[in-house]
Design a protein around this nucleic acid. Sequence first.
RNA 1: GUGGUUGUAGCUCAGCUGGUUAGAGCGCUGGAUUGUGGUUCCAGAGGUCGCCGGUUCGAACCCGGUCUUCCACCCCA
Length: 458
Amino acid sequence: MAQKPSIPKGTRDFSPAEVNKRNYIFDTIKKHFQIFGFQPIETPSFENSETLMGKYGDEGDRLIFKILNSGDFLSKVDDVTYSSKNSGSLTPKITEKALRYDLTVPFARYVVMHQNEIDFPFKRYQIQPVWRADRPQKGRFREFYQCDADVVGANSLLQEVELIQLYDAIFTDLKLEGVHIKLNNRKVLAGIAEIIGAKHLLVNFTVALDKLDKIGEEGVKKEMLEKGISEESIAKAAPLFSLSGSTGEQLTMLKELLQDSEEGLEGIRELQFVMDTVKEIGLQSAQLSLDVTLARGLNYYTGTILEVSAPEGVKMGSIGGGGRYDDLTGIFGLKNVSGVGISFGLDRIYLVLEELGLFPKTLEQSIEVLCLNFGEEEALASLKLINTLRKLGVKADLYPTDAKIQKQFKYANNRNVPYVILLGEKELVENAFVVKNMANGEQKTFSIDSIEDFIASL
RNA sequence: GUGGUUGUAGCUCAGCUGGUUAGAGCGCUGGAUUGUGGUUCCAGAGGUCGCCGGUUCGAACCCGGUCUUCCACCCCA
């Protein structure tokens, strides 16, 4: 007895309707990427392990899918390593490749490998699946698509401004209005850590701070203490917890707090510039705000940090994020190439659009015209008609068998076909065809010699 | 990786403290209606109760394991 087939945890099949909706998002994102001057690249699904390992922190390494070596991979492992049963030391010896974890690190590798062919500044976009050995939840999968746009080789903060405009353009076009773009700067975080005397604990400090809206001030303080940050330090950071008011007021308060940190003040200047310039140009529907608690776990960000969350009332994690990384290509041996980029989480955007009912109704239509099948002779005439319609760009189809007309109509109805053509015995004689508008039930007769009249009525 | 949760017809879900032949709505198929769908009426098909094992005279129900779903951590898109 055959077992019921299944697919691995955290993976999905997509039905025609779902693929259509996903493509709608892909196409919208792609369109704006190109309008903003980004060019597409693609990289392999899997990379050499050393390209990926160590780039996302210990937590990230754990979530990277490793690919078992081919052939007799165990024979090359020495007895000591083998019998110690230590996954940490055994893993590197039996896996040399790993599935891509995000698109940014492979892109950095790409830039380094192709540095002599690339004209900098290089603006690239990349839309491909990535894999994470995470435990799935709603909106979290083990295979999912990322849509990235990055610029490398340009230090200008105008890039940040442009990427914010790009977020705004895409979400506005998707009719997802009112998304929140949160802005922060790693230098500000580093400056604060420096001022409070916890510079060596920067990562622990920021990870804890990032949870402010979730676990509250007391929770954050508790976590900081647990991570080895002294009470004295935490007290110094206190103003952060009660930061409020307009962007300008917040920046003024931060400036005061950071007056003895050169790095921190630099971060403030950067934030100020980006905020001011975006304000000058204006956004269509997105809301940009400052959020000093925004940290994001990825270690490689060095300047601007961006995160996008769904509009008020939609329960969903972030639907996009990004930032500036000055050293990413440095890991692969290319110094002084600054990069800044943003990412869109397709699957989460999908869930948000679905929840808010923002997908266009036309996506549910597979064809515009279905021609009913009345029998051999009529079908032949229908095919000729459809052939003409197709040449004119109309999505048209013939019902393949002369099933009962009722059944054929039902099929058209279920497929959301807006127009049904009836070309039966009677019409065949009269060299005509009847068009039924499925929405209102109206029927009109057209001559086969003047199909244009029908097209014009669509 | 830690702790919990879920799984019954194509879909959404009932199913009592373990007790004959596991139900409903929607969908599907056929008919009322041999050239007219979306409304209505009638009839029908469709189930290894996630999987493996255990307890029991008897298991959808209890126990163990496993897979899956979702949730809280962790982390993140």
